[in-house]
Design a protein around this nucleic acid. Sequence first.
DNA 1: GCGCACATTGTCCATCAGTACAATATATTT
DNA 2: AAATATATTGTACTGATGGACAATGTGCGC
Lengths: 206, 206
Amino acid sequence: MRDLFITPQPELLSSWLQAVPKAKRITGLNEITSTQQETICWVHIDIAGQKPLADILPAILKHAPSTKIIVLANAPSQSEAFYALGLGAQGYCHAFSPSKVLKEIKTVVTHGGIWVGSDFLKQLIHATTNLAGNKTHQVSILLAKLTKREQQVAIEAAKGLSNKEIARILNITDRTVKAHLSSAFETLGAKDRLHLALMLNDNSLK
Amino acid sequence: MRDLFITPQPELLSSWLQAVPKAKRITGLNEITSTQQETICWVHIDIAGQKPLADILPAILKHAPSTKIIVLANAPSQSEAFYALGLGAQGYCHAFSPSKVLKEIKTVVTHGGIWVGSDFLKQLIHATTNLAGNKTHQVSILLAKLTKREQQVAIEAAKGLSNKEIARILNITDRTVKAHLSSAFETLGAKDRLHLALMLNDNSLK
DNA sequence: GCGCACATTGTCCATCAGTACAATATATTT
DNA sequence: AAATATATTGTACTGATGGACAATGTGCGC
């Protein structure tokens, strides 16, 4: 196990050294020589913005793909956490986290896990629950209230198609489309097709 | 540390016991007496469907809120994983996972982490990147193309408001609202307000 | 000062959307 | 067999929508 710290600060924080006694500070990525031993790269970000992350993380992974990366942020933010994980980081936490937390993070990451703050986690689960879980589920519940034909019409309408276009697709009159749509509005409590589109496409971020 | 297994299939216990030698199988939730020691509850789900999870997990957490829950699924699915995590589980994996993996999961969870499969994780990060990262970003890019007033009008229109309602909110004529909207359509390449609403609310799942 | 982008409003008009009132046909349930 | 739910289409009407053509005022940079 090898722990490398990349930080713009001249010295490692004491809490880091407490958590990782054998920590080594490096200045350039070329010091990440590829070895057999597992490597954890602690990347310290002291300024906001995603440019450094976007450069550093891919560079590290290019050097040594199996490297575990933990991002230490001076000013942590949800969006940056998303960003870091999206770039391949295994952990994202406050740079001033107590050594106890850092140790836990190291343990988790070493064992193939991902470590993120609980707030972030809540947010993540909430967002994704709304997205892939409930969302589709909720939409299914709504659609289930409609008849088969009403569903087809509603779905097409929710895509933004006009009544005429829907009529052509389903091979019926646009008058019939109106009938089904009106019925769908009534059943689902939508005031118009835009409202219905919002319900069916849903937008968890409102 | 106390490990409790809830399973309808005792046959699998042997492989689990390899990973967690001191594990104990329980049949009813009332056996989860609240103690000082940390408890991991391994919940085995052998049939598809979310009803059992929706019953069991909250019940466990009601008994002993600090319990860590790991769900073992005979037929794992992304949606069920989402569901389990949303209900408060700390881990979700295949019921036939090798003991080595189970050990890792235990380590991760014990240290306050969340364990999910790598496929799930990829999906999660992809979804959330699209959701909270790029999505908002994309929308920002779209909105940035509009003038301040056009943005305001477009945003309200995307919520489903009529021109009159928007006019009232912004304290302008509905004719002006039309003007800004028309301009926004032109700029963003939207054919009508529904199209614009879909663009701005976005629907990463289409 | 002049041009330009932006905001505001007007009239006119063609089209679309949604509802009201109504009728017919088919399938399923009781 | 009667009733009910579903699918289909019609006419007529109202209101919303979006574009065409046009004008006025304001602020900002060259």
